[in-house]
Design a protein around this nucleic acid. Structure first.
Length: 423
RNA sequence: GGAGAAAUGGCAGAGCGGUCGAAUGCGGCAGUCUUGAAAACUGUUGUACCGCAAGGUACCGGGGGUUCGAAUCCCUCUUUCUCCGCCA
């Protein structure tokens, strides 16, 4: 959520930048400023009324104490009148605030100036790529075939006990999954991140804190009986650790990493690209989250991108980095880099990580601030990135490393798997 | 799940319906003293909104109510603690 003062002071810039998202902000921005003017005006009137009745209440108290009950009762009549007026204003104030908040919720984050304009992922800008695309042997097959052949993942069994999109990992498949999780966590910890195991369910306030609510309400699993949501990513509980928190400048940066299963309803995405591990309702992910000083957040974004690059290099996977265009940029993000690995049997690039700087957009909703060295209160910048999402990594590992003799495990993982070949 | 108690400033902890944004202690900050530090002493020390300012308003877990006036009374929700039951 943007700050109203920021909107006031940067109206034209915001409207211009939001065009990159194909979001026409002109009307809504004007309404926000108008409502905010209104809010100030009403607030002012209300304050004056309350000041007056506070005064009167004091006088009445004095009068009663000195035994002048008649005079006191006269004044009482006046306060009733004042109260009626101030109640009316309070109601007005509440509805203005509510309306203002609803409008603010609708405005996405302002894209960074280097975000390219564009409509969809087709307009994303590939900024970097590394690694060789493997040539597979004649009988190479996609990962879902391999998973079946070597009994690594059972999709049908998942359908039986839960439904589509909830695979069952077995034997070496399960072990490989656990190996990846440990590897990713260890790499993050080595780079100074604190390991966190957060709750897998969140309340409504947390959903609003990081911006999943109200924007993506239908994408989260919701448990009505307890009014809780299953997390769609560890970003939500880990960033919300800092909701309503006042930090010191010396606390920054805060670096946390967490492994969690993630739950996504994926409502509306049927048919395409959903085979095998490509799109699941439940999947595992290691997420890195940083809370940083506003002056340093873009530097940090680069560091995080490099962290993920290194993971992919160690896994020996060909990858590329895409700078998301305005049309593909998440609602809360100011700048996002997607990391994609090449899945050789499917012959396509799969998104395995998304690394974003949210600037103050989340911090404003979260009320996560810090006292700077001059004693002034400022909003922090929040960032996060997958490091990494497991299923598509697994898919490309299986596909790219298949040989007629079996599937080779990359060196970096062998200490974690305990085997170097699936056969 | 049942019964009871509680929730106050960074922390601890007072608070009779009006003089309470809130005693006191600790902590923090500034100063005096000291070669320096400690101790002692003095002062200062919450957040948000409106306002150029003076100042005003709101906030004592959240929401609602009673009252001219609520930290204080009532209702409700949440959380914590104690006891009982169940349980990985």
């Amino acid at each position: 959520m943007l700050q109203t003062n920021y909107i006031r002071e940067n109206k034209t810039l915001i409207i211009e930048r939001l065009k990159k998202r194909n979001f026409d902000a002109e009307t809504i921005i004007s309404s926000i400023i108008e409502l905010d003017d209104n809010r100030k005006k009403t607030q002012h009137e209300l304050d004056a009324l309350l000041a007056e009745s506070n005064q009167l209440a004091k006088q009445i108290g004095e009068l009663f104490k000195t035994g002048k009950a008649t005079e006191a009762n006269e004044l009482k009549a006046k306060t009733t009148e004042l109260k009626e007026q101030s109640n009316k204003l309070k109601e007005e104030q509440n509805s203005i605030n509510e309306e203002l908040l609803q409008l603010l919720y609708q405005v996405p984050n302002v894209p960074n100036e280097i975000v390219p304009a564009g409509k969809s992922d087709a307009d994303n800008e590939i900024v970097f790529s590394e690694g060789e695309i493997p040539t597979l042997h004649d009988k190479a097959v996609p990962h879902w075939e391999l998973a079946k052949q070597y009994d690594l993942i059972d999709f049908e069994l998942g359908v039986k006990i839960t439904g589509a999109g909830f695979p069952v990992y077995k034997g070496k498949g399960a072990r490989l999954q656990r190996a990846l999780i440990s590897f990713f966590l260890d790499q993050a910890v080595e780079n100074g991140y604190q390991e966190i195991i957060p709750p897998l369910m969140i309340n409504e306030a947390s959903g609003y804190g990081t911006g999943q609510l109200p924007d993506k309400e239908g994408q989260m699993y919701y448990m009505q009986a307890d009014d809780l949501y299953m997390i769609p990513t560890a970003e939500v509980p880990i960033t919300n650790l800092y909701r309503d928190v006042m930090l010191k400048e010396s606390d920054l940066p805060i670096k946390n990493v967490g492994y969690t299963p993630c739950f996504r309803r994926e409502a509306g995405s049927y048919g395409k690209d959903v085979r095998g591990l490509n799109r699941l309702h439940q999947f595992d992910k290691v997420e890195i989250v940083q809370i940083q000083h506003p002056d340093k957040s873009y530097e940090t974004l680069d560091v995080m991108v490099n962290h993920v690059k290194n993971l992919l290099i160690k896994l020996e996977l060909p990858y590329r980095v895409a700078k998301l265009c305005g049309g593909d940029l998440g609602f809360t993000s100011a700048l996002t880099f997607d990391m994609e690995v090449y899945s050789a049997a499917q012959e396509k690039w799969l998104e395995v990580s998304s690394i974003s700087n949210f600037e103050t957009f989340q911090a404003n909703r979260l009320k996560c601030r810090f006292k700077d060295n001059d004693g002034k209160t400022q909003l922090v910048h929040t960032l996060n990135g997958s490091a990494l999402a497991l299923p598509r990594i697994l898919a490309s590992l299986l596909e790219n490393n298949q040989t007629p003799e079996g599937i080779k495990i990359p060196k970096a993982l062998i200490p974690y798997t305990g085997f170097d070949m699936i056969n």
